[in-house]
């Protein structure tokens, strides 16, 4: 049965790497907004959970010609693949239908209570955007840390995979507010993610890629806009922006001379 066609939204994000200072506020805003569990040792990066993870890249040159750039990496909320594979790489592999691409928002959902923790989606995701709960959420008795938990996002149990949801609950919150005002459509700024909101450098822009009026859909047209690992055909909805060639080159794998050729072609 074919779904009836509604002009859907395609929420997406663009991160201006030239503005990003790598301060980590997005990571923390995300964790605070989404009740991400904190353990006493978060330095075990292979097992800690940071939906919005920060990578640091350098141009590899020697001092004092070293340049540094920070790469915040949320879930890319990949689109359907054009080569007939149909679904984001994590969605097609999920055994229990715990993760799905919503065609009306473009958001890839993750339902913790459905997930059985097989971690096949982690194997499928090249961005490492998916995190497994190796432990139960750490809220020891007597500390009272659980008092800051937000009821808008359900805390996760151990043994399930979680990831960035584009703060989907904020969409729900914005929709409720709109409904209270007898509206159905949302204004551009009514729904943005916690990371975009918190960024002190205002490097993150969030909005509907299908709506030409939204800043994000204008920004992605920049010749300096690019996506991570675009050649893998994952079609991410998270874009990046940088006018530094070396940064753009590090966003994907290139054979020797390939990137330079592309640069020449695009002028």
């Amino acid at each position: 049965m074919k779904e009836k066609h509604v002009p859907g939204k395609r929420y997406g994000m663009i991160i201006d790497l030239d503005k990003c200072t790598g301060c980590g506020t997005c990571t923390i805003a995300c964790a605070a907004e989404n009740n991400v569990s904190v353990r006493s040792d978060e330095s075990d990066k292979e097992r800690s959970i940071t939906w919005m993870e920060l990578f640091k890249i350098t141009n590899g040159k020697e001092f004092p010609h070293t340049e540094v750039c920070y790469f915040p990496r949320p879930c890319m909320h990949c689109e359907e693949d054009g080569r007939g594979h149909h679904q984001p790489s994590c969605v097609s592999v999920c055994v229990a239908t715990a993760t799905k691409l919503d065609h009306n928002t473009g958001i890839v959902s993750q339902v913790y209570t459905r997930c059985i923790g097989c971690r096949y989606c982690q194997a499928a995701c090249p961005y490492k955007a998916r995190y497994f709960n190796w432990w139960d959420a750490y809220f020891p008795k007597g500390k009272g840390l659980e008092r800051y938990l937000s009821p808008e996002v359900s805390p996760r149990m151990r043994g399930v995979v979680e990831k960035c949801t584009f703060c989907h609950h904020r969409l729900m919150r914005a929709k409720n507010l709109a409904y209270a005002e007898e509206r159905r459509e949302l204004e551009e700024d009514e729904y943005i993610t916690a990371c975009a909101e918190a960024c002190p450098a205002q490097a993150i822009t969030f909005g509907d890629l299908n709506n030409p009026k939204h800043r994000v859909s204008q920004l992605i047209k920049s010749p300096y806009a690019f996506r991570l690992l675009e050649r893998l055909n994952t079609k991410p909805k998270v874009y990046y922006l940088s006018n530094k060639d070396w940064v753009r080159k590090l966003a994907d794998n290139y054979l020797p001379g390939e990137f330079e050729k592309i640069m020449k072609l695009s002028g």
Binding site: T25, A29, L145, Y148, E197
Partner: peptide
């Protein structure tokens, strides 16, 4: 305007941490 630093973002863990 709008932004906040990481430390400010984590303030509730200072409020609600009895230990």
């Amino acid at each position: 305007p709008g932004g906040i630093c990481p430390l400010g973002m984590g303030g509730l863990q200072l409020l609600y941490n009895e230990s």
